[in-house]
Design a protein around this nucleic acid. Structure first.
Length: 385
DNA sequence: AAACCGGGGGT
DNA sequence: ACCCCAGGTTT
């Protein structure tokens, strides 16, 4: 039977070809869990150094559960999808409270953990506990859609659910861990999206997609909407006096995009479409000056500094960064600037900080702001030498 | 079902 | 420039 052939050949190939990955060196459910969360929408080579640093800092689930959230975010800095880190820590706290610190060997209990969906449930149950639970990710859907010539849209939840049923029938007795990992390994190393290596594929002989010459058309996947462009004006405010040598950063709200991350102050240029992109430097700087003054900080513009871009799944940021200089309140008063709003907005400023380059090690920044800040501090050091 | 949620690497 | 990646949560 074709299905039996598939599982047997696949397992034999996996034993021969599997990569030596850090999380394959033990069966600690906590390590499996951390690796699976990091691997969501992220390549193996990217994850490996993050995994080592994370486990070194949080060797046990309990240490993760009890850590400050800021420490967790800092270790996740640059990986993206930061809610993964927040949910992983919440999940660890759930395990401490509900399961005495041991990841439960129970499908429903695992699925109830924060940040653990159908895929990760299957990955933990099978890889850590060798339980026959499907773990259907993008790799698995690509392999199955080709091998069984399934033309359903893999963007639909129903397609994934159908493939889970199929996988349940394919898992060999007692081999759930190896079988699920073998499927993903095949998708990662052989049955790749663009140029599948069919000639070295262990299951090529019975691959219906290949036999039909359809391997490059599969899987069928509906297109995602392109990210909407946003034009933003960014303030790189240099401190003066007591804050000399420091730059103003602020923390984002605890929910939503880049939750709790730190950044340079910036704002959306929300003119009519097309106009935002063409706002003059003077207009863009004026907006920042007004916004900062509203928070009780008086500044004067020094001029354009650099441009940067940052793409999310659904938004594309076009950033124009302006250097600005902190103005002492007394100077601002002499210049006729009114600042009675300052006291009322103390709490607004509570989420702002003046930082040095060394302070960057204490706060997590999205990549684009790391790039800007590092360039600025680099050039500043050069100037002083 | 669709939108929201980062960043990097392959092609 | 576009696609894809060991997805999950929210609406």
């Amino acid at each position: 039977m074709v299905k039996r052939f598939f599982s047997t050949e696949l397992l034999e190939w996996y034993e021969r070809s599997k990569r030596d990955l850090p999380w394959r060196r033990h069966r600690d459910p906590y390590y499996i869990w951390v690796s699976e969360i990091m691997l969501q929408q992220t390549r193996v080579d990217t994850v490996i150094p993050y995994f080592h640093r994370f486990i070194e800092r949080f060797p046990t689930l309990q240490e993760l559960a009890e850590a400050p959230e800021a420490d967790v975010l800092k270790l996740w800095e640059g990986l993206g999808y930061y809610s993964r880190a927040r949910n992983l820590q919440r999940g660890a706290q759930q395990v401490m409270e509900l399961h005495g610190g041991q990841v439960p060997n129970d499908k429903l209990a695992v699925a109830a953990l924060k940040g653990v969906g159908p895929y990760t449930t299957g990955a933990i149950m099978s890889i850590a506990f060798n339980q026959p639970v499907p773990a259907v990710d993008g790799n698995v859907m690509r392999v199955l859609s080709r091998y069984f010539l399934i033309e359903d849209d893999i963007m639909k939840n129903a397609t994934r659910a159908g493939m889970e049923v199929l996988i349940e029938q394919l898992i060999p007795e007692g081999r759930a861990s190896d079988f699920n990992q073998a499927l993903m390994e095949l998708g990662a190393l052989v049955c790749t999206p663009k140029s599948p290596h069919c000639l070295t594929c262990p299951v090529m002989m019975h691959c219906e997609g290949r036999l039909a010459g359809m391997e490059l058309q599969l899987p069928v996947k509906s297109k995602a909407k392109p990210p909407r462009p946003e034009f933003r004006t960014v303030a790189l405010v240099e401190g003066t006096g007591r804050e000399a040598g420091r730059v103003l950063v602020r923390q984002r709200p605890a929910a939503g995009l880049l939750a709790s991350m730190w950044e340079l102050p910036h704002m959306l240029l929300q003119e009519a479409p097309g106009v935002a992109a063409e706002a003059t430097d003077e207009q863009a700087m004026d907006l920042l000056i007004q916004e900062l003054a509203f928070s009780g900080l008086y500044t004067r513009p020094l001029g354009p500094y650099m441009e940067a871009e940052h793409t999310f799944s659904h938004i594309h940021w076009n950033l124009r960064v302006y250097r600005m200089e902190q103005l002492a309140a007394s100077v601002a008063a002499e210049a006729g600037v009114r600042y009675e709003a300052a006291a009322a907005l103390e709490e607004n400023m509570a989420r702002s900080l003046w930082i040095t380059r060394e302070d960057m090690a204490l706060h997590a920044f999205p990549k684009v702001f790391l790039t800007i800040l590092n360039r600025y501090f680099d050039e500043r050091e050069q100037t002083y030498k």
